[in-house]
């Protein structure tokens, strides 16, 4: 169904979205790129001068950059593994006949609906507090020494918090996919003598491939820019132990007012994200075609 009328109308109707998004992406990105070559600090207005690659050199040789890069990868990787793995197990469990499945689903999805600042604060104070937190109380009840989670294991703590937020999402998407699995196919495999494990491996897992791809894509988009959880709990510390790239650039821009340095960091973050996106988009494009 396409005539010249509809085609030109289509172009006209698509252009606001495309133009706005393009501006939203291109203009600030160009500015970031420009700033990244300047010595530009908001505390010293009027002192801007061409800095060449200095900002990049500074940012890339800063030891903080490497720990931030490392932390970002650990954070994204661990949360993906925990949420997809745990989500798969949860989905398989919830796919079984369970009394009150509706309520269970409601309970499980809840963490996903909580705003990051709230979940970070609740975990920081009421769960992980070394004296009054529930974890401390639990540890003491079983006779262990309570841990000061956020200073002893800051990155692990943040991984826990973020995983708690994303596990429900993975669970529910995988569950939805599981429930669309053709019962006949499973029964046919059972008739063919396939054991439970083989049925899972050859039928369930391939069926879930698409859903798992979607989970990985969406979670990666959001996990690369985890921010509020860090800001509220550890502020990136101690030292840089729980600083990710996003948070590192934030500190440079809005705490140290170093626009040039932050911009160079921003460009580095964009390049890193592009590398990740390149593979993800290919993966997703292939998987969403079918």
């Amino acid at each position: 169904m396409a005539t010249l009328h509809t085609k030109s109308a289509a172009r006209a109707m698509m252009s606001p979205s495309v133009i706005l998004l393009f501006c939203w992406m291109a203009v600030p990105l160009a500015m970031t790129l420009y700033f990244s070559f300047l010595r530009y600090n908001l505390l010293m207005p009027g002192m801007e001068e061409w800095a060449g690659l200095f900002n990049y050199e500074f940012f890339l040789t800063d030891p903080a950059f490497f720990s931030a890069l490392f932390n970002t990868l650990i954070l994204v990787g661990s949360v993906l593994v925990i949420s997809v793995g745990g989500g798969l197990l949860m989905a398989l469990l919830l796919d079984q006949p369970v009394f009150g499945q509706g309520i269970v689903r409601v309970l499980v999805i809840s963490p996903f609906l909580i705003m990051p600042t709230v979940s970070a604060l609740v975990w920081k104070n009421m769960m992980m507090h070394p004296v009054y937190g529930l974890f401390a109380w639990l540890a003491k009840t079983v006779g262990l020494d309570p841990i000061d989670w956020l200073s002893a294991a800051p990155l692990t703590s943040i991984v826990m918090i973020v995983s708690w937020q994303w596990l429900p999402f993975a669970t529910l998407i995988l569950l939805t996919a599981l429930q669309s699995l053709d019962e006949d196919q499973m029964e046919a495999a059972e008739m063919d003598g396939a054991s439970l494990w083989w049925r899972f491996y050859f039928i369930v897992l391939p069926h879930l491939g698409r859903a798992i791809t979607v989970v990985i894509l969406i979670e990666t988009i959001f996990l690369l820019s985890v921010f509020a959880e860090i800001l509220v709990t550890t502020s990136g510390g101690p030292g840089y132990a729980s600083t990710n790239i996003t948070y590192l650039i934030y500190t440079q821009a809005l705490l140290q007012f170093d626009v040039g340095g932050a911009s160079a960091g921003g460009i580095v973050a964009v390049i890193l994200a592009n590398i990740v996106a390149f593979f993800l988009i290919r993966l997703i494009g292939k998987n969403l075609e079918g």
Binding site: L29, S263, G266
Partner: peptide, 13 residues
């Protein structure tokens, strides 16, 4: 893919 662009990359401008 614009969603993949880290917001921090455009925060300053």
């Amino acid at each position: 893919s614009t969603k993949m662009l880290p917001p921090v990359g455009v925060l300053v401008p």
